[in-house]
Every structure is written in C-alpha cells, then in structure tokens.
Design a binder for these strands. Structure first.
Lengths: 260, 260
DNA sequence: CGTCGGTTTGATCCCTGTCAAATTAAGTGG
DNA sequence: CCACTTAATTTGACAGGGATCAAACCGACG
C-alpha cells in the first residue's frame, strides 16, 4: 500500500484515453497475441559462424509471432514465460505510473532482444509500435540451455550488464541536457542502426518520442522545429528525417550552442 | 570520437573543482585504495541459514577494505576485478559526462552489493561518501563459484534484473515528478532502510542529493524548505531529518498537492 | 575569532508543461 | 474523385519550476 512502485492502473498504455490503437482488434487482451504462433519450430540445428549462442538458440528453437500496431507484446506483471528477438518492426518498452505517466526506456527493433532481464514476472510492458514480427523462445527452453551452456550464460550476463549501463547513462542525459539536444541524440542513436544514405522513417509518434526523452508531445514538436531551423536535421515530412552531417564535427560533440 | 558516451574527463568526481575531498590522501589515485586490504581471508566455511549464496561467499572468501570520505572505490573504465558488499558507510555510484555533469544512480549502504553487473570493466564510478567499509571478493573467485553453483547463478540474475527494473522505474520518476516530491521519495526510500524512530542522518551533501534526483544543489535546499514548511518532514539540522507520519496516509500516496 | 566549505535564501531568466487553436494527414463514405 | 470526419502534428500564448548568479548564513576547525 505504501509502496509507490506499484503500477496497477495502466500497466499497458495501448488503450489509454489519449492514444487509441488504430488497427488492433486484440489490443486490449492481457497477454493475448495479435496473431498466434505462425512458423513452426525448426528441427535441424542451424548455425551461422557469426551467431552468438543466443542467436543460435533463436535460430533453432523459436516460434514466430506477429503483432498489430498498438497491441501488447508482454504486460507488466504477467509471468515472464518467454524471451523475444525482434525480426522486424519496432516495439516500445515502458513503465507507467499510477497517474498514467509513461517512460519509454527502449525502442527495440530488428535484432534486439526483449525480455532478457526478467525471470519471474515482467517488470515492464512492451507494445508494438508498428507491425511487429518477433521470434520467441519459451522460458523453459532458455533455462534448460542456460543450465548446460556456459557461453550462453556469459552472453546473458553481458547483455544484462549492457542494458544496465545504458539505462544509467540514459538517466544522466535525461536530467542534464535540454530538449533539443535530447531529441538530437535520440535521432542520432536511432539513425545509427538504420544504415543507408536516405531519409530515416520514424515509426513512432511524437508522444512516444516525448515519453522516451522526457518531454511533452508539444515540446518534441518544438525541438524538431528547432533542429530543423538550425540546419541540424532535414525533416522531409513529420516522419522522415535525415541528420545533416556537418563535415567539421570533431571537438564539439554537438553544435547546439548557437542560438537561433 | 563521434561517440558521445565516452566519459573520458571526470570519470571520477572525487577531485572535481567544486567538490574537493577533505581527508582523502589517496583520493586522486586512479584505482588506489584508501586503505589496503585489512582483515585477512577467513578460512572456515561459515553460513547462516538465512544467507543467500552470495552472502555465504562473502562470509567465506572476502577481504575487508576501508575507504576515506571522497575516495574512489572503483573507477569507470578500470578492470572489474572484484565484487563488493558494503559493511558500513555510504557509497555513491555515478556516471559523469564530458561536461562534468553527474548522475548518481544509487547510494549503496550496509548490506548492498556493488559491482554485480560488470564483467569486463566498470561502467560507472563508485566513491565513498563517508567512511566506508566493504568486503570484496576477487572476480576470479566469483566466476569459479558461478561455474559450479547454480543457485548463485540464479541469485546473480535476480539481482541484476532487480537493478534494471529499479533503474527503469527511476527514469520515470526523474522526468515525471517535481522537485519536492522527488526529494520526498528519496527521503522516504532512504528512511526505509534506517529503522528506528529517531532522526535519520544524511551522510551525503546537498549536491549529491541533487545529482541523484536531478536537481541543482539550490533546488534541493528549496525542496527541503518546502517539505519542512508543509510539515512533511522534521528537519532537525541540515543533515538530520524525520518523516512526519501523518496517521491517515492511505489512498493519497503523497499529500503534496497542497500549495504552500 | 577568523577562515573555509557547505547550506540557505533571493533575484532573475529560460525551458518546458499546459491549454488552445490552426494546420496537416489519414481515412471513410458518397 | 471529392466532401466529411477524425487523429496527429504544429504553432501560439501563458505560467510555473528550476537553473543560474549572487549574497547571506552557518558550522567546523585551527
């Protein structure tokens, strides 16, 4: 009762008043899958040379699932009975407090794992931003493999350690930098994973971005306008952007000190 | 070069300009211990029934070390060659960016572990707030035990998962609540570990608190005054406080909505 | 008793949340 | 294909919280 960390209302944000799922017939269901397991388990043991242990496990013992935009991939408080690898699409991982305020701490996308940290129950909620395809491995399978595979154990520890380090760095940027710089860093980080010279498409809405970098929806818009006005980004449409690679970027990590 | 996550300057905050270590002769040294290993390793295998695997390991295979206020327990970037258990005193764990801004994400105290997350190198810096005594276990010892002790493995995973969950919740409160409430929550959480009806002593300075809850030193002072004025805390001196347990605290998690 | 570091308070400015309205985008049905 | 509806983005106006600069206060210590 006294514990303020209970996230009882709004464990999922999929059906909050301000943000409705557009095309999510099964969105409200607690741990319902938007689409049931599709591809059956593969039987032969395949492995690429550059695979990690965990990837190998996914290659050999995973089910594929689809999620409609806005649907819930996993729900805070539910049993953590699987582990996920994003095949395509974007997911938002978030915690929500009793007043409906939300913090999106990650946007896992292709190649990212989801659910490596929890053993018993999920401490967060994951929702599909756009159409998402994931592979999942039953928790039991993972545990069995962990019991005998020492490399996998090391990999899992490294993964979790990396997540923790990233969160603790995120905390620093959340409190120490202003809106436009936070947005710029996010766009930069997001762009880093989308190679190619063209424009990058943002699958998530302004509110999602705001809940990620700690700004209101409106401030995100202003930050976008600000970066555009300063010539730091090229905003083709509200969802397509490109970072302007200023040739002489070196000592100054961010040329954000110029005022309009 | 382009990576903005490099924490090259000020990996330690012990000797930043504004905050000097008072009594730390070896404070500036990179990985120097304020005092070398003191108590020798214990040889017999002791174990309390309520011990966890990790505590048992500390009971049997640890060295005791002392740290003066302001000295560095472990430094960001150094090899993670040990794991720590705080015996007494308070530590601050933080990340620092290139502009000297600091985020203290935890204040480990008696009974808390430090360094469970990193395998290769420390991703953060830990410094003694006051006089600190820790027990440490060499990384090698831990790894050897991990290889054969399945319960310990589960414990470590649970520990790390708990840390990650806590950080992700912290991120939410950092951006969603105002200064006084953040301070109140911190004082509440801090008090939760110090049982006893008397006044609680804060070992850390205002700046440390500020860097923990994302406020400037001055705003921390104002938040203290604010809470005192509203009768939510009893501030005996600048470092001794007591939460005012308003008898009817139930539905309202925080009676902070009244305006001065 | 004076010095020094930390704390507190004051004055001011800027960022950002909030409320509101305008604009654009995306469907939907005729 | 166009009118209509609805959601999302953008911009504007305004107020409040907190950072910053500065000064006063306070306690520890030699």
């Amino acid at each position: 009762m006294k514990d303020m960390t209970a996230f009882l209302p709004y464990a999922s944000t999929a059906n909050r008043p301000p943000l409705r799922p557009k095309l999510a017939p099964s969105g409200a269901g607690a741990s319902a899958y938007a689409t049931g397991p599709k591809a059956a388990k593969q039987t032969q043991t395949l492995r690429d040379n550059d695979d990690t242990e965990l990837l190998t496990l996914f290659r050999n013992a995973s089910f594929e699932q689809h999620f409609q935009p806005g649907s819930t991939v996993l729900l805070h408080g539910d049993p953590a009975d699987a582990i996920y690898l994003v095949v395509s699409g974007t997911i938002r991982c978030c915690t929500v407090d009793s007043e409906g305020r939300r913090q999106i701490f990650a946007f896992p996308k292709k190649g990212d794992f989801v659910g490596v940290s929890d053993i018993d129950r999920w401490h967060f909620t994951a929702e599909a931003v756009d159409h998402v395809i994931v592979k999942s491995i039953p928790r039991l399978t993972l545990e069995q493999e962990l019991a005998v595979n020492i490399s996998l154990r090391l990999e899992m520890r490294t993964l979790m350690g990396g997540l923790l380090a990233r969160r603790e760095r995120q905390m620093l940027t959340l409190v120490s930098t202003k809106g436009p710089e936070r947005l710029y860093r996010f766009l930069e980080e997001f762009a880093a994973t989308r190679s190619g010279g063209g424009h990058i498409v943002l699958p998530m809405c302004r509110r999602d971005i705001g809940d990620h970098i700690g700004l209101s929806m409106e401030s995100v818009c202003r930050a976008f306008s600000d970066l555009k006005r300063r010539g730091l980004i090229d905003l083709k449409s509200h969802e397509k952007y490109k970072l302007i690679g200023n040739a002489g970027r070196d000592a100054t990590p961010l040329p954000l000190h110029a005022d309009l």
